[in-house]
Design a protein around this nucleic acid. Structure first.
Length: 443
DNA sequence: TAATATGATTGAGT
DNA sequence: ACTCAATCATATTA
Protein backbone atom coordinates (compact mmCIF):
# COMPACT_ATOMS: atom_id res chain seq x y z
CA UNK A 1 0.00 0.00 0.00
CA UNK A 2 2.78 2.36 0.83
CA UNK A 3 4.20 1.55 -2.54
CA UNK A 4 0.96 2.38 -4.22
CA UNK A 5 0.79 5.69 -2.49
CA UNK A 6 4.28 6.51 -3.62
CA UNK A 7 3.48 5.52 -7.14
CA UNK A 8 0.39 7.62 -7.10
CA UNK A 9 2.33 10.56 -5.77
CA UNK A 10 4.96 10.13 -8.37
CA UNK A 11 2.36 9.95 -11.03
CA UNK A 12 0.80 13.04 -9.63
CA UNK A 13 4.20 14.68 -9.69
CA UNK A 14 4.38 14.29 -13.41
CA UNK A 15 0.80 15.40 -13.71
CA UNK A 16 -0.56 12.34 -15.28
CA UNK A 17 -3.21 11.37 -12.85
CA UNK A 18 -5.48 12.80 -10.30
CA UNK A 19 -8.33 10.52 -9.60
CA UNK A 20 -9.01 8.44 -6.64
CA UNK A 21 -8.06 4.88 -7.03
CA UNK A 22 -9.25 1.72 -5.43
CA UNK A 23 -9.45 1.87 -1.72
CA UNK A 24 -10.34 5.52 -1.61
CA UNK A 25 -6.86 6.86 -1.94
CA UNK A 26 -7.12 10.40 -3.10
CA UNK A 27 -4.43 12.34 -4.82
CA UNK A 28 -4.18 16.08 -4.62
CA UNK A 29 -5.63 17.71 -7.69
CA UNK A 30 -3.02 18.87 -10.11
CA UNK A 31 -2.15 22.47 -9.80
CA UNK A 32 -2.59 24.82 -12.64
CA UNK A 33 -5.26 22.77 -14.31
CA UNK A 34 -8.80 23.65 -14.57
CA UNK A 35 -9.84 20.05 -14.81
CA UNK A 36 -11.77 20.33 -18.03
CA UNK A 37 -9.53 19.88 -21.04
CA UNK A 38 -7.58 16.97 -19.55
CA UNK A 39 -10.54 15.06 -18.32
CA UNK A 40 -10.45 12.41 -20.99
CA UNK A 41 -6.81 11.72 -20.39
CA UNK A 42 -7.25 11.56 -16.67
CA UNK A 43 -10.02 9.15 -17.15
CA UNK A 44 -7.76 7.16 -19.33
CA UNK A 45 -4.93 6.95 -16.83
CA UNK A 46 -7.29 6.21 -14.03
CA UNK A 47 -8.64 3.33 -15.98
CA UNK A 48 -5.21 1.99 -16.63
CA UNK A 49 -4.25 2.21 -13.01
CA UNK A 50 -7.41 0.62 -11.97
CA UNK A 51 -6.78 -2.20 -14.33
CA UNK A 52 -3.31 -2.66 -12.96
CA UNK A 53 -4.49 -2.74 -9.41
CA UNK A 54 -7.23 -5.20 -10.00
CA UNK A 55 -5.31 -7.41 -12.32
CA UNK A 56 -4.71 -10.00 -9.64
CA UNK A 57 -8.41 -10.43 -9.09
CA UNK A 58 -8.97 -11.53 -12.61
CA UNK A 59 -8.75 -14.89 -14.20
CA UNK A 60 -5.64 -15.76 -16.11
CA UNK A 61 -7.23 -15.48 -19.50
CA UNK A 62 -8.78 -12.22 -18.62
CA UNK A 63 -5.52 -10.97 -17.21
CA UNK A 64 -3.71 -12.10 -20.28
CA UNK A 65 -6.04 -10.14 -22.43
CA UNK A 66 -5.76 -7.11 -20.18
CA UNK A 67 -2.03 -7.42 -20.15
CA UNK A 68 -1.95 -7.45 -23.86
CA UNK A 69 -4.18 -4.46 -23.87
CA UNK A 70 -1.93 -2.60 -21.51
CA UNK A 71 1.16 -3.55 -23.43
CA UNK A 72 -0.33 -2.09 -26.53
CA UNK A 73 -1.64 0.96 -24.82
CA UNK A 74 -0.30 4.17 -26.13
CA UNK A 75 0.52 5.37 -22.65
CA UNK A 76 2.51 2.33 -21.83
CA UNK A 77 6.00 3.77 -22.57
CA UNK A 78 5.27 6.73 -20.38
CA UNK A 79 4.08 4.56 -17.55
CA UNK A 80 7.09 2.35 -17.93
CA UNK A 81 9.51 5.24 -17.72
CA UNK A 82 7.68 6.47 -14.66
CA UNK A 83 8.06 3.13 -13.01
CA UNK A 84 11.73 3.16 -13.87
CA UNK A 85 12.10 6.52 -12.28
CA UNK A 86 10.31 5.38 -9.17
CA UNK A 87 12.46 2.39 -8.91
CA UNK A 88 15.55 4.50 -9.23
CA UNK A 89 14.37 6.77 -6.47
CA UNK A 90 13.20 4.14 -4.07
CA UNK A 91 16.49 2.33 -4.44
CA UNK A 92 14.89 -1.02 -4.53
CA UNK A 93 17.55 -2.36 -6.77
CA UNK A 94 19.91 -4.94 -5.44
CA UNK A 95 22.12 -3.51 -2.84
CA UNK A 96 25.37 -5.18 -2.01
CA UNK A 97 24.01 -8.53 -3.00
CA UNK A 98 26.36 -10.75 -1.08
CA UNK A 99 27.50 -12.97 -3.83
CA UNK A 100 30.24 -15.51 -3.30
CA UNK A 101 28.53 -17.09 -0.36
CA UNK A 102 31.25 -19.03 1.45
CA UNK A 103 31.14 -22.78 0.89
CA UNK A 104 29.18 -24.45 3.59
CA UNK A 105 31.59 -26.57 5.65
CA UNK A 106 28.94 -29.16 6.35
CA UNK A 107 28.13 -29.47 2.69
CA UNK A 108 31.80 -29.85 1.96
CA UNK A 109 32.08 -32.56 4.55
CA UNK A 110 29.17 -34.43 3.05
CA UNK A 111 30.58 -34.03 -0.43
CA UNK A 112 33.95 -35.34 0.67
CA UNK A 113 32.42 -38.29 2.37
CA UNK A 114 30.28 -39.21 -0.59
CA UNK A 115 33.31 -38.94 -2.79
CA UNK A 116 35.36 -41.07 -0.46
CA UNK A 117 32.68 -43.71 -0.30
CA UNK A 118 32.48 -43.79 -4.05
CA UNK A 119 28.88 -42.65 -4.10
CA UNK A 120 29.53 -39.44 -5.91
CA UNK A 121 32.38 -38.99 -8.31
CA UNK A 122 33.42 -41.21 -11.16
CA UNK A 123 32.19 -44.77 -11.36
CA UNK A 124 34.87 -47.16 -10.35
CA UNK A 125 33.16 -50.41 -10.92
CA UNK A 126 35.69 -51.71 -13.43
CA UNK A 127 38.52 -52.04 -10.98
CA UNK A 128 36.55 -53.76 -8.28
CA UNK A 129 34.99 -56.12 -10.76
CA UNK A 130 38.42 -57.03 -12.00
CA UNK A 131 39.59 -57.58 -8.45
CA UNK A 132 36.60 -59.78 -7.72
CA UNK A 133 37.26 -61.76 -10.86
CA UNK A 134 40.87 -62.17 -9.87
CA UNK A 135 39.87 -63.34 -6.43
CA UNK A 136 37.46 -65.82 -7.90
CA UNK A 137 40.06 -67.07 -10.34
CA UNK A 138 42.53 -67.51 -7.54
CA UNK A 139 40.05 -69.78 -5.87
CA UNK A 140 39.67 -67.71 -2.77
CA UNK A 141 36.96 -68.71 -0.36
CA UNK A 142 33.86 -67.47 -2.04
CA UNK A 143 32.47 -66.42 1.28
CA UNK A 144 34.38 -63.24 1.44
CA UNK A 145 33.76 -62.19 -2.10
CA UNK A 146 30.09 -62.95 -1.82
CA UNK A 147 29.82 -60.67 1.12
CA UNK A 148 31.77 -58.19 -0.82
CA UNK A 149 29.59 -58.26 -3.86
CA UNK A 150 26.63 -57.94 -1.58
CA UNK A 151 28.08 -54.83 -0.10
CA UNK A 152 29.00 -53.49 -3.50
CA UNK A 153 25.53 -54.18 -4.82
CA UNK A 154 23.97 -52.29 -1.94
CA UNK A 155 26.40 -49.46 -2.33
CA UNK A 156 25.72 -49.12 -6.00
CA UNK A 157 22.04 -49.18 -5.22
CA UNK A 158 22.50 -46.24 -2.92
CA UNK A 159 24.66 -44.64 -5.52
CA UNK A 160 22.02 -45.04 -8.15
CA UNK A 161 19.27 -43.66 -6.00
CA UNK A 162 21.45 -40.77 -5.06
CA UNK A 163 22.21 -39.94 -8.64
CA UNK A 164 18.66 -40.23 -9.90
CA UNK A 165 17.43 -38.06 -7.06
CA UNK A 166 20.17 -35.57 -7.67
CA UNK A 167 19.30 -35.47 -11.32
CA UNK A 168 15.67 -34.98 -10.49
CA UNK A 169 16.49 -32.10 -8.21
CA UNK A 170 18.72 -30.55 -10.79
CA UNK A 171 16.09 -30.88 -13.45
CA UNK A 172 13.45 -29.40 -11.19
CA UNK A 173 15.79 -26.61 -10.30
CA UNK A 174 16.50 -25.85 -13.92
CA UNK A 175 12.85 -25.99 -14.84
CA UNK A 176 11.89 -23.71 -12.04
CA UNK A 177 14.70 -21.33 -12.84
CA UNK A 178 13.79 -21.04 -16.48
CA UNK A 179 10.19 -20.63 -15.52
CA UNK A 180 10.99 -17.80 -13.17
CA UNK A 181 13.31 -16.25 -15.69
CA UNK A 182 10.69 -16.34 -18.36
CA UNK A 183 8.22 -14.85 -15.99
CA UNK A 184 10.55 -12.07 -15.06
CA UNK A 185 11.44 -11.43 -18.66
CA UNK A 186 7.81 -11.28 -19.50
CA UNK A 187 7.22 -8.91 -16.65
CA UNK A 188 10.16 -6.82 -17.64
CA UNK A 189 8.02 -5.58 -20.48
CA UNK A 190 5.69 -3.92 -18.06
CA UNK A 191 7.98 -3.17 -15.14
CA UNK A 192 11.67 -2.45 -14.97
CA UNK A 193 13.67 -5.53 -14.09
CA UNK A 194 17.41 -5.43 -14.41
CA UNK A 195 19.36 -8.49 -15.43
CA UNK A 196 21.06 -8.36 -12.07
CA UNK A 197 17.77 -8.84 -10.37
CA UNK A 198 17.08 -11.87 -12.47
CA UNK A 199 20.50 -13.18 -11.59
CA UNK A 200 19.83 -12.65 -7.95
CA UNK A 201 16.54 -14.41 -8.14
CA UNK A 202 18.20 -17.32 -9.85
CA UNK A 203 20.85 -17.54 -7.18
CA UNK A 204 18.16 -17.52 -4.52
CA UNK A 205 16.42 -20.38 -6.26
CA UNK A 206 19.67 -22.26 -6.54
CA UNK A 207 20.40 -21.78 -2.90
CA UNK A 208 17.02 -23.15 -1.97
CA UNK A 209 17.53 -26.16 -4.15
CA UNK A 210 21.00 -26.78 -2.86
CA UNK A 211 19.64 -26.87 0.65
CA UNK A 212 17.29 -29.57 -0.52
CA UNK A 213 20.22 -31.31 -2.11
CA UNK A 214 22.04 -31.18 1.14
CA UNK A 215 19.27 -33.13 2.76
CA UNK A 216 19.61 -35.73 0.06
CA UNK A 217 23.34 -35.89 0.62
CA UNK A 218 22.87 -36.17 4.31
CA UNK A 219 20.47 -39.05 4.09
CA UNK A 220 22.70 -40.76 1.55
CA UNK A 221 25.61 -40.45 3.92
CA UNK A 222 23.54 -41.94 6.68
CA UNK A 223 22.56 -44.83 4.47
CA UNK A 224 26.17 -45.48 3.58
CA UNK A 225 27.19 -45.37 7.20
CA UNK A 226 24.54 -47.87 8.12
CA UNK A 227 25.58 -50.11 5.27
CA UNK A 228 29.16 -49.88 6.36
CA UNK A 229 28.45 -50.71 9.93
CA UNK A 230 26.37 -53.67 8.82
CA UNK A 231 28.69 -55.13 6.28
CA UNK A 232 32.11 -53.86 6.92
CA UNK A 233 32.62 -53.80 10.62
CA UNK A 234 35.57 -56.08 10.36
CA UNK A 235 35.43 -56.96 13.99
CA UNK A 236 31.95 -58.25 13.73
CA UNK A 237 32.42 -59.95 10.44
CA UNK A 238 35.79 -61.47 11.04
CA UNK A 239 36.71 -64.32 8.78
CA UNK A 240 39.66 -66.54 9.30
CA UNK A 241 42.10 -66.77 6.48
CA UNK A 242 42.11 -69.96 4.52
CA UNK A 243 44.39 -72.74 5.68
CA UNK A 244 46.48 -72.26 2.62
CA UNK A 245 46.90 -68.58 3.33
CA UNK A 246 47.94 -69.21 6.91
CA UNK A 247 50.36 -71.79 5.66
CA UNK A 248 52.01 -69.38 3.28
CA UNK A 249 52.21 -66.68 5.90
CA UNK A 250 53.62 -69.07 8.45
CA UNK A 251 56.16 -70.32 5.98
CA UNK A 252 57.34 -66.83 5.37
CA UNK A 253 57.32 -66.03 9.05
CA UNK A 254 59.39 -68.98 10.12
CA UNK A 255 61.78 -68.75 7.24
CA UNK A 256 62.37 -65.13 8.12
CA UNK A 257 62.31 -65.62 11.82
CA UNK A 258 65.38 -63.53 12.30
CA UNK A 259 63.61 -60.60 10.84
CA UNK A 260 59.94 -61.23 10.25
CA UNK A 261 59.25 -57.83 8.76
CA UNK A 262 58.19 -58.22 5.16
CA UNK A 263 58.68 -55.24 2.93
CA UNK A 264 55.84 -53.59 1.10
CA UNK A 265 56.57 -55.66 -1.97
CA UNK A 266 56.80 -58.82 0.06
CA UNK A 267 53.52 -58.03 1.72
CA UNK A 268 51.86 -57.50 -1.59
CA UNK A 269 53.33 -60.67 -2.92
CA UNK A 270 52.18 -62.60 0.12
CA UNK A 271 48.76 -61.09 -0.08
CA UNK A 272 48.53 -62.16 -3.69
CA UNK A 273 49.73 -65.64 -2.89
CA UNK A 274 47.32 -65.93 -0.02
CA UNK A 275 44.44 -64.80 -2.18
CA UNK A 276 43.61 -62.07 0.21
CA UNK A 277 43.73 -59.60 -2.60
CA UNK A 278 40.55 -58.20 -1.21
CA UNK A 279 40.90 -57.39 2.39
CA UNK A 280 38.19 -57.82 4.96
CA UNK A 281 37.81 -54.15 4.81
CA UNK A 282 37.66 -52.88 1.25
CA UNK A 283 37.74 -49.34 2.45
CA UNK A 284 41.30 -49.85 3.43
CA UNK A 285 42.16 -51.31 0.08
CA UNK A 286 44.13 -53.56 2.13
CA UNK A 287 45.62 -56.84 1.17
CA UNK A 288 48.98 -55.70 2.47
CA UNK A 289 47.14 -54.31 5.45
CA UNK A 290 45.83 -57.68 6.37
CA UNK A 291 49.27 -59.14 5.91
CA UNK A 292 50.68 -56.47 8.16
CA UNK A 293 48.05 -57.26 10.73
CA UNK A 294 48.87 -60.91 10.49
CA UNK A 295 52.58 -60.34 10.96
CA UNK A 296 52.00 -57.89 13.76
CA UNK A 297 49.83 -60.38 15.57
CA UNK A 298 52.15 -63.23 14.80
CA UNK A 299 55.27 -61.49 16.02
CA UNK A 300 53.68 -60.49 19.24
CA UNK A 301 52.03 -63.79 19.90
CA UNK A 302 55.09 -65.72 19.01
CA UNK A 303 57.24 -63.61 21.25
CA UNK A 304 54.79 -63.84 24.09
CA UNK A 305 54.82 -67.57 24.13
CA UNK A 306 57.65 -69.05 22.15
CA UNK A 307 57.15 -72.42 23.74
CA UNK A 308 53.68 -72.68 22.40
CA UNK A 309 54.88 -72.01 18.90
CA UNK A 310 57.84 -74.32 19.08
CA UNK A 311 56.04 -77.17 17.46
CA UNK A 312 54.73 -75.01 14.69
CA UNK A 313 58.18 -73.56 14.20
CA UNK A 314 59.72 -76.98 13.89
CA UNK A 315 57.06 -78.03 11.47
CA UNK A 316 57.66 -75.11 9.18
CA UNK A 317 61.40 -75.40 9.55
CA UNK A 318 61.23 -78.97 8.35
CA UNK A 319 58.96 -77.95 5.54
CA UNK A 320 61.30 -75.23 4.55
CA UNK A 321 64.20 -77.62 4.66
CA UNK A 322 62.44 -80.02 2.35
CA UNK A 323 61.69 -77.25 -0.08
CA UNK A 324 65.27 -76.17 0.21
CA UNK A 325 66.43 -79.64 -0.63
CA UNK A 326 64.50 -79.49 -3.85
CA UNK A 327 65.79 -76.07 -4.56
CA UNK A 328 69.32 -77.17 -3.89
CA UNK A 329 68.96 -80.15 -6.13
CA UNK A 330 67.73 -77.91 -8.89
CA UNK A 331 70.45 -75.42 -8.22
CA UNK A 332 73.13 -78.04 -8.32
CA UNK A 333 71.97 -79.07 -11.70
CA UNK A 334 71.93 -75.51 -12.83
CA UNK A 335 75.35 -74.77 -11.49
CA UNK A 336 76.77 -77.53 -13.51
CA UNK A 337 75.90 -75.68 -16.65
CA UNK A 338 76.16 -72.09 -15.47
CA UNK A 339 79.06 -70.09 -14.26
CA UNK A 340 79.18 -70.29 -10.47
CA UNK A 341 79.92 -66.60 -10.16
CA UNK A 342 76.83 -65.51 -12.03
CA UNK A 343 74.64 -63.53 -9.63
CA UNK A 344 71.18 -64.74 -9.06
CA UNK A 345 68.44 -63.21 -11.05
CA UNK A 346 66.36 -63.27 -7.91
CA UNK A 347 67.49 -59.78 -7.18
CA UNK A 348 64.72 -58.53 -9.41
CA UNK A 349 62.63 -57.63 -6.43
CA UNK A 350 60.05 -60.35 -6.10
CA UNK A 351 60.59 -62.53 -3.14
CA UNK A 352 60.88 -66.18 -3.73
CA UNK A 353 59.55 -68.04 -0.80
CA UNK A 354 61.29 -71.39 -0.92
CA UNK A 355 64.56 -69.92 -2.01
CA UNK A 356 64.68 -66.87 0.14
CA UNK A 357 67.95 -66.18 1.80
CA UNK A 358 66.84 -66.82 5.32
CA UNK A 359 66.60 -70.37 4.33
CA UNK A 360 70.30 -70.53 4.67
CA UNK A 361 70.03 -69.22 8.14
CA UNK A 362 67.42 -71.74 8.97
CA UNK A 363 69.73 -74.40 7.87
CA UNK A 364 72.45 -73.08 10.08
CA UNK A 365 70.16 -73.09 13.01
CA UNK A 366 68.92 -76.47 12.26
CA UNK A 367 72.51 -77.36 12.48
CA UNK A 368 72.60 -76.20 16.02
CA UNK A 369 74.96 -73.34 15.35
CA UNK A 370 74.27 -70.11 17.02
CA UNK A 371 74.38 -67.12 14.76
CA UNK A 372 72.76 -64.73 17.10
CA UNK A 373 72.52 -61.44 15.39
CA UNK A 374 74.70 -62.45 12.55
CA UNK A 375 72.12 -62.80 9.85
CA UNK A 376 69.71 -60.05 10.50
CA UNK A 377 68.09 -59.10 7.32
CA UNK A 378 69.46 -61.86 5.20
CA UNK A 379 66.55 -62.69 3.02
CA UNK A 380 67.68 -63.14 -0.50
CA UNK A 381 71.16 -64.03 -1.46
CA UNK A 382 72.81 -65.27 -4.51
CA UNK A 383 71.66 -68.69 -5.30
CA UNK A 384 75.23 -69.67 -5.86
CA UNK A 385 76.05 -68.66 -2.32
CA UNK A 386 73.15 -70.62 -0.97
CA UNK A 387 74.36 -73.51 -2.92
CA UNK A 388 77.86 -73.33 -1.58
CA UNK A 389 76.71 -73.06 1.99
CA UNK A 390 74.11 -75.69 1.85
CA UNK A 391 76.47 -78.05 0.24
CA UNK A 392 79.02 -77.39 2.91
CA UNK A 393 76.39 -78.04 5.54
CA UNK A 394 74.99 -81.17 4.08
CA UNK A 395 75.67 -83.24 7.16
CA UNK A 396 73.84 -80.88 9.46
CA UNK A 397 71.04 -80.59 7.01
CA UNK A 398 70.49 -84.29 7.12
CA UNK A 399 70.47 -84.17 10.86
CA UNK A 400 67.87 -81.51 10.80
CA UNK A 401 65.58 -83.54 8.71
CA UNK A 402 66.03 -86.71 10.60
CA UNK A 403 66.31 -85.72 14.15
CA UNK A 404 65.93 -82.86 16.48
CA UNK A 405 65.44 -79.58 14.75
CA UNK A 406 64.98 -77.19 17.59
CA UNK A 407 64.03 -73.96 16.00
CA UNK A 408 65.30 -71.16 18.14
CA UNK A 409 64.23 -67.56 17.86
CA UNK A 410 67.72 -66.44 17.16
CA UNK A 411 66.45 -63.10 15.96
CA UNK A 412 65.01 -62.22 19.29
CA UNK A 413 67.15 -60.20 21.60
CA UNK A 414 67.17 -60.29 25.34
CA UNK A 415 64.51 -57.67 25.63
CA UNK A 416 62.07 -59.76 23.74
CA UNK A 417 62.20 -57.68 20.64
CA UNK A 418 63.53 -58.55 17.25
CA UNK A 419 66.76 -56.72 17.67
CA UNK A 420 67.75 -54.41 14.93
CA UNK A 421 64.31 -54.29 13.52
CA UNK A 422 65.43 -51.63 11.16
CA UNK A 423 64.63 -52.21 7.56
CA UNK A 424 66.96 -54.95 6.56
CA UNK A 425 68.15 -53.62 3.30
CA UNK A 426 71.54 -54.94 2.55
CA UNK A 427 73.51 -56.61 5.24
CA UNK A 428 76.86 -58.19 4.97
CA UNK A 429 77.13 -61.20 7.12
CA UNK A 430 80.43 -61.55 8.91
CA UNK A 431 79.94 -65.22 9.45
CA UNK A 432 79.63 -66.19 5.90
CA UNK A 433 82.07 -67.52 3.47
CA UNK A 434 84.04 -65.27 1.22
CA UNK A 435 82.20 -63.24 -1.29
CA UNK A 436 78.74 -63.93 -0.06
CA UNK A 437 76.77 -60.79 0.18
CA UNK A 438 73.15 -60.83 1.16
CA UNK A 439 71.37 -58.44 -1.04
CA UNK A 440 67.89 -58.54 0.29
CA UNK A 441 66.03 -57.15 -2.61
CA UNK A 442 62.68 -58.09 -1.24
CA UNK A 443 63.00 -55.31 1.25
C1' DT B 1 29.05 -73.27 26.35
C1' DA B 2 33.48 -72.03 28.06
C1' DA B 3 38.05 -71.76 26.38
C1' DT B 4 40.95 -70.70 22.97
C1' DA B 5 42.34 -68.86 18.42
C1' DT B 6 42.50 -65.12 15.41
C1' DG B 7 41.93 -60.92 12.52
C1' DA B 8 41.25 -56.10 13.33
C1' DT B 9 41.53 -51.78 15.95
C1' DT B 10 43.48 -48.40 18.98
C1' DG B 11 46.80 -45.57 21.23
C1' DA B 12 51.45 -44.79 22.45
C1' DG B 13 56.20 -44.70 21.13
C1' DT B 14 59.85 -44.08 17.69
C1' DA C 1 54.85 -44.54 8.58
C1' DC C 2 55.61 -48.35 11.17
C1' DT C 3 55.59 -51.32 15.19
C1' DC C 4 54.17 -52.91 19.67
C1' DA C 5 51.01 -53.98 23.22
C1' DA C 6 46.59 -54.26 24.77
C1' DT C 7 42.16 -55.01 23.60
C1' DC C 8 37.94 -56.07 21.06
C1' DA C 9 34.78 -59.05 18.72
C1' DT C 10 34.11 -62.87 16.35
C1' DA C 11 35.31 -67.86 14.86
C1' DT C 12 36.52 -72.25 16.11
C1' DT C 13 37.29 -76.01 19.12
C1' DA C 14 36.91 -79.02 23.11
Amino acid sequence: MDEQARIMQALGGVSLAGHSVQGGMALPPPHGHDGTDGDGRKQDIGDILHQIMTITDQSLDEAQAKKHGLNCHRMKPALFSVLCEIKEKTGLSIRGAQEEDPPDPQLMRLDNMLLAEGVSGPEKGGGSAAAAAAAAAAGSPADNSIEHSDYRAKLSQIRQIYHTELEKYEQACNEFTTHVMNLLREQSRTRPISPKEIERMVSIIHRKFSSIQMQLKQSTCEAVMILRSRFLDARRKRRNFSKQATEILNEYFYSHLSNPYPSEEAKEELAKKCSITVSQNPLKQGSPNSVSNWFGNKRIRYKKNIGKFQEEANLYAAKTAVTAAHAVAAAVQNSQTNSPTTPNSGSSGSFNLPNSGDMFMSMQNLNGDSYQGAHVGANVQSQVDTLRHVISQTAGYNDALGGNPMYSPHGLNGNGGWHDATTPSSVISPTEGPGSVHSDTSN
